[in-house]
Simulated scan of single mutants.
Amino acid sequence: MSFSLCIDQGNSRTKIGVFEQDNLIESQTFDYFSFEDIGALFHKYRDLSTIFSTVVKPDEKVIAYLKEKSLSFIELTHETKVPINNQYKTPETLGKDRLAGVVGASFLKPHTDILVVDIGSAITFDFIDSTGVYRGGNISPGIGIRLRGLHEFTQKLPLVEAKQTNELLGSDTQSAILSGVMYGIVFEIDGYIDELRKEHPLLSTFLTGGSTFYFVNKLKNAIFANENLILTGLNRILLYNAQK
């Protein structure tokens, strides 16, 4: 029996998932990532086909290790065949996590207009229509960037730690910064959903990324929270290429 090893290396963490066909059977998250972290998986599952996606400069030692150990290996690039129609004008600059996210969402809710919101170091908004055409999206600063920006580009504003808040309006400078950043993101996400629904009334929205939990219960619009959406998309890309 063969399995799929999907690796999503982001700016601040790396997520790994092992799939049996479309079933995620094991996942791990690392703040720092090296090939030693996945050696046990190759011993445990033996027959692993691997897809590797990174938004940072890849470690050539990791690539060499994966190529050596895997039954088959794909490093996701703009030239990799995918099961959607990518209409991004500069596909070579499109984040691989963004591409995998819309592939995963399109697989989970086929024939649906979908907005994928990935809340990580940056916040990305990506739209794929009901015919499987990826139309593009936007990139916005994430929580940490907004909090650090207010501190670093002003003389007096403090650096505030990200955390949950239910205060719409702050009662002091610390809470004003926290509420301004967190609810600013809430209104930003809801605003995109509202605007897209004017043209696509049956729009579905997926939330994913490491900071999703801050916002799941604060949005006025219904959403699907899926922390493994990008891994799901990577698995679908790997299986799609295996059929070629």
Rank of each mutant, 00 (worst) to 15 (best):
T80M: 08
Q28P: 00
Y183P: 03
S4N: 11
L48V: 04
E75V: 06
K57A: 13
T80I: 07
D118A: 12
L24N: 04
G95V: 06
L71G: 11
S2I: 12
M182N: 10
G132M: 04
E199N: 12
E227W: 00
I128M: 09
Y32I: 12
F215R: 03
S140D: 06
I128F: 11
G149C: 04
L239D: 08
D47M: 10
A64C: 08
S27N: 15
S49H: 13
N217M: 07
E161S: 14
R146Q: 15
I193P: 03
V216Q: 10
K15T: 04
M182E: 12
E75G: 03
I123C: 03
F215V: 01
D97C: 05
L229V: 01
L219I: 05
T124W: 06
K218E: 04
L196N: 05
L66N: 01
G95E: 05
H200N: 09
I63K: 14
I223K: 07
F19W: 09
S53H: 06
V216P: 00
R197P: 00
G136H: 01
D37Y: 07
K220R: 13
I223G: 00
S204T: 09
Y192A: 02
E92G: 11
V181F: 10
R98H: 02
I189R: 09
A162M: 07
G233I: 10
E227R: 03
E68K: 15
G209C: 02
Y65Q: 05
N217Q: 13
T173M: 09
S171Y: 15
E195K: 13
S121A: 14
G95F: 14
A176M: 07
T165W: 10
D126K: 03
T77C: 01
S27K: 15
M1Y: 03
T93P: 05
L231C: 06
L239W: 08
G184P: 09
E68G: 11
Y134C: 02
H43E: 15
R135Q: 15
N226L: 06
D8T: 02
I16G: 08
K220N: 11
L207C: 03
I139H: 08
Y214G: 04
G136T: 01
T93F: 15
D47N: 15
T131Y: 12
K244N: 05
